[in-house]
Every structure is written in structure tokens, then in C-alpha cells.
Design a protein around this nucleic acid. Structure first.
Lengths: 173, 173
DNA sequence: GGTGTCGGTTCTGATTATGAACTAAGTTGC
DNA sequence: GCAACTTAGTTCATAATCAGAACCGACACC
């Protein structure tokens, strides 16, 4: 993305979020962090990522406030990387991505199933309207201008497209 | 990412999803598609993206089955790009990303507010357990192996706890 | 027939990723 | 005491990828 010359960053929260986590390695690092990995070498081995790239991404995540870097031992000073609250709150996005992958890209069932910690049953993720007291699907979403803008455009494409050529469902490597 | 030498793609749905949409431009294109944009030049102007890049990303999205390319007029043959069902179902991920950006990166309120189309009230997004009939937060998520593996590791970092040497929690690829 | 629109492609230079090697501060083995 | 190993990096040269400017082609408009 060109420095900042395009749309002002504040104009779109998605664009702003992508400034921080809009990188494949970054998201995979976060995925691993959610799984419990904390150390440089654990990330490096798991992802098979080049050291300079990992170093760079971790630094950026720390700078952005998504992770923290704290010493876990002194003698040879060693650090571990953990998700901050800001980082933990990225989980809905990662979960959504994972479920999408499960649904559309997996050939033989989800590799990992997320469950409600309390009861052990698979979780669902969705949209909820407190007023109507009901859940609803993506096609029932509309968007409204926030406090500073003045447009109103639909977030959902206005037709679920009649034909949906099955052939194209193949995944790309 | 190295070709395919690391973890088998099917082992992680997030990695698989990133093969398709793990690119900043791609996600912004999808965002615009959700807003209703359909034509090459509309995307190009809105994003201020280089033509070859847009061309490439759109082609990849079509190949992956996330969008379709269909002629909307004949004389000078012109095409439009639309989300398929597969693409529409990415909305939870985009919404999650947007809400995260709203919460953590916006200085003066969300630029755009998403609402329930039926009643006009702001929507909520969350995790839901059908069994317990209740919503819950990211910290109440655990993960279970899918049909093919045999491990059990929590997806959420178990809080700002004192020590819990990451190494022991390490996942298995 | 000149200008404009739309949807691209080609070419080239800039950015980014990569692996290999090196550093640094220790620990462990013998 | 010395070699080998661990962890967390950095530096460097090269390879791959990306992005931007300019161009192309088919048509519309006037």
C-alpha cells in the first residue's frame, strides 16, 4: 500500500487493522500464539520462517501493542512473546477465518474443532441482535455511517448470485 | 511461505484460508465487494491500486471460487466481479476485523456502524453455544482435535499468568 | 478522427523474502 | 578448560515478488 496517500486510515477500520496484521506471516504467528507458543525458536521451527522475517514481525506486533516481549529468564537473557488483551481480542477474526477454511477448503473435515470450554460442545460464531433477541446471517447486515461520514452503502452484495459454478470451488495452492 | 514443504495445508484451515486471502490488497478488494463495488475501474479508483495488481488479485479470487467474473455488456465486452456464496461467507472474518479495528485503532468512534437490516440496531458478533444456550467470550474457547489428529490444546492463551513455559504448551503440527 | 472509457498487459525498477553465515551470552558434557 | 550446544537474534547477498508507468485494443461519443 502506498504510504498513506490513499484513503485516510481512519476511514476504514479494516484498512487500519490490515496495517498491523495484514501479512500472512503475521497472522500465522498470531495463530501460533493462540495455540500457546511464546518463544522465538518455537515460532521459527513451527512456521519454518526465516529468522529475519520472524524477528521483524514480532517487533512490529510488539510495537503495535498486540504482543508483549518480556524476559522469562535472566542468566542468558531470554524473552517470550505473549498476546496482550488487544491481541487476544483478535480471536474472533482468526476463528472466523478458520471456520471459513474448514467449510470451503477442507476436504475431510476440520483439522481442529473449537469447543465451549465449559461444556465441550462445538461453538458457533455469528451475528446477534440484542434488540430482536435473535441471531442472523451475513445477508441481514446493513451499514450506517458512523459519527463522521455521510454515506450509506450496503455491506452485502445485493444478490447471492444465481449460478455458482461448482467447478471453481477447487482450492488454489 | 515456502511452497508446501512445511505443514501440510490441510492441517490448518487458517493457513489454507491465507493461501487465498492472505494479502492486504485481496482483503481490501473483498471489503469493497461487500460494499457493492463490482467493476474493475471502481475497485481501482477506490483503492488506488496498481492495475496489474488488481488484475492479478481478481483473477486469483475468481480462480479460488471467491468471486465470479461475468460480462455485464457485450459491445465492448465488459465484466463485473461478484462475490460467490463462498465469498459472502467471508463476512464474519471481515466484520471481526473491522470491529477489532474500531475497538483498538480508531480514535474517534467507528467510521461505519453495522446494523441488523431488519431493525436497524447495531449488531453484535460473538461465540454461541447451542447446548448451553449462551454466548461467551474468547477466553472460554478450547480446541479439540478434528477427526484425524489426537491432541488437545487450548486455543486461548490462559491469561496473563505468571509462568507457563510456552514450550510445554507447544502444539503438534 | 480526436478524445474518452473500460479492462486489461508488458516492461522495468523497487521492495521484500530467503538462506547462509555470524554474533553473543550463556549451559552442558567430558 | 575446551568443545559443542542452545536461544535469540543480526548482517549480508541473492532470489522472488510487487508495484507503477506506460502502453494496447475495442468500442462510444461528437
Amino acid at each position: 500500500m502506498p504510504p498513506s496517500s490513499e484513503s485516510p486510515p481512519t476511514d476504514c477500520s479494516i484498512a487500519a487493522a490490515l496495517e498491523i496484521i495484514g501479512d500472512r506471516w503475521t497472522i500465522l504467528i498470531l495463530r501460533d500464539a493462540f495455540r500457546g507458543l511464546r518463544r522465538f525458536d518455537d515460532f521459527r521451527k513451527d512456521l519454518d520462517i526465516a529468522r529475519p522475517v520472524l524477528s521483524d514481525r514480532l517487533r512490529k506486533l510488539v510495537d503495535a501493542g498486540v504482543m508483549t516481549r518480556t524476559a522469562y529468564q535472566q542468566r542468558p537473557e531470554r524473552f517470550e512473546y505473549r498476546l496482550t488483551r488487544m491481541g487476544i481480542e483478535l480471536s474472533p477474526a482468526l476463528v472466523a477465518l478458520m471456520r471459513w477454511g474448514d467449510t470451503w477448503l477442507s476436504t475431510d473435515g476440520p483439522p481442529t474443532v473449537l469447543v465451549h470450554d465449559v461444556c465441550g460442545h462445538p461453538l458457533e460464531q455469528g451475528f446477534w441482535c440484542r434488540t430482536c433477541q435473535e441471531t442472523f446471517s451475513p445477508s441481514d447486515i446493513a451499514s450506517r455511517p458512523g459519527l463522521h461520514s455521510h454515506r450509506t452503502d450496503p455491506i452485502s452484495p445485493d444478490t447471492p448470485d444465481p449460478q455458482l459454478h461448482g467447478a471453481t470451488r477447487a482450492r488454489v495452492t
